[in-house]
Design a binder for these strands. Structure first.
Lengths: 206, 206
DNA sequence: TCAATATTTTTTGTATACAATTTATATAAT
DNA sequence: ATTATATAAATTGTATACAAAAAATATTGA
């Protein structure tokens, strides 16, 4: 009866649906029908429902439809990101360990020499290291929930090779290494504002 | 078959369980057993499960147990609150309408003359008016999710009649009326820090 | 033709059954 | 008595059935 899958049907469904949304296999605006998804994944509706609820919490789905984030949505997410990550950058200048700073530097290096796939990962890690330094589970959870939508966004930015992105990371890294909280926060805010502006630029074109 | 309740079983279950947790009817640390809750509320396990999932998202439940927030949890929540509400207070000084400022003043007045129940509501409204002024759905949702735990906290503060609480609200209201963003933000941060300190004081005693 | 209403179909919400898992309890061996 | 192992009980995860609600389609009257 139970599939030989190593994980629960619910988790499998959650990840599967999320991935399909993130890589565009399920287009924005699509209505998700429980029975159809259940059939596709070879499970019953029960785990599908739970997966959908979770995705709704992450705002990737809104009443059974895959979201199509508007410009306003993005601005709102970034307003929050700027507050939280700006704060985290400031704290990092005071609290980050030398080892973590090395990790951060590695992310910058990969940003210069890695493959697109590697760069994606490194950019995510860069922001995560800074956030984790502040050691606030609530904050981490909030950022985690926004991650899916941010992922959609980050893909575009890296794919289109935004100018100065890695330079900005390096500047932030240096400000942290030099233990300059004000500068670290300011640079992080500028960095995120530039990210947002760049993305909105591409949104307008499609 | 269907109860004559005006709302869905799921919503009824959600609200019912949440309220029982908030008013202490279900003590912190209690393991929630689906079947028991289902029997109590006269529904099946299905809507109970959904309700529990939602409450888990709000951090009121963590793997089937009612949370017992630690001091660290509270500090973390307030670190976020201070960032978001501080920002909202600053924005309010610039954008809040005269009518909304009147509403804010009313909350202060009720804080001075109302019943405990009325004061609770007015204090909640005070913070909501400021947050709503910034008109950021993402922020509102984040605060909403923390609301349950904040409620547990606010009850204590009002019940014990924290000194200066309403004075601080009035100061914030005045800073907004005087269109002074810096001061509004600073006062809000101080206000929330005082709230936190007061609550931690009582936590230590029990 | 078009709007209004009825009818059918699809989809969701809820209850229930049962298997899988976890947790508690009892039994045996040292 | 204490640990190890077996057994039983409780609890959760999943599948399925069916009723309620929502959405789509057809039908009627102007």
């Amino acid at each position: 009866m139970k599939k030989n899958a190593s994980q629960s049907a619910y988790l499998h469904a959650y990840e599967s649906i999320r991935d399909k949304v993130l890589n565009g296999e399920i287009a924005g605006g699509t209505k998700l029908v429980e029975e159809k998804l259940a059939k596709d994944l070879g499970v019953s509706r029960t785990p599908i429902r739970e997966a959908i609820r979770k995705l709704e919490q992450e705002d990737l789905i809104q009443d059974k439809r895959v979201v199509l984030p508007t410009e306003k949505d993005l601005r709102e997410i970034f307003q929050v990101r700027i507050l939280l990550e700006g704060f985290a950058a400031r704290a990092s200048a005071t609290y980050m360990s030398e080892e973590a700073i090395e990790e951060l530097q590695k992310c910058v290096d990969i940003g210069r020499n890695g493959t697109t796939e590697e760069i994606m990962k490194a950019n995510k890690a860069f922001h995560e290291i800074i956030l984790d330094t502040n050691n606030n589970k609530v904050m981490i959870k909030i950022m985690d929930r926004m991650q899916s939508i941010i992922y959609l966004f980050r893909k575009t930015v890296v794919y289109h090779k935004r100018p100065h992105l890695i330079d900005e990371h390096e500047q932030i890294c240096n400000a942290i290494r030099n233990r300059n909280p004000e500068e670290a926060e300011e640079l992080m805010k500028k960095h995120l504002e530039a990210d947002l502006a760049f993305f909105l630029h591409f949104m307008g074109q499609d």
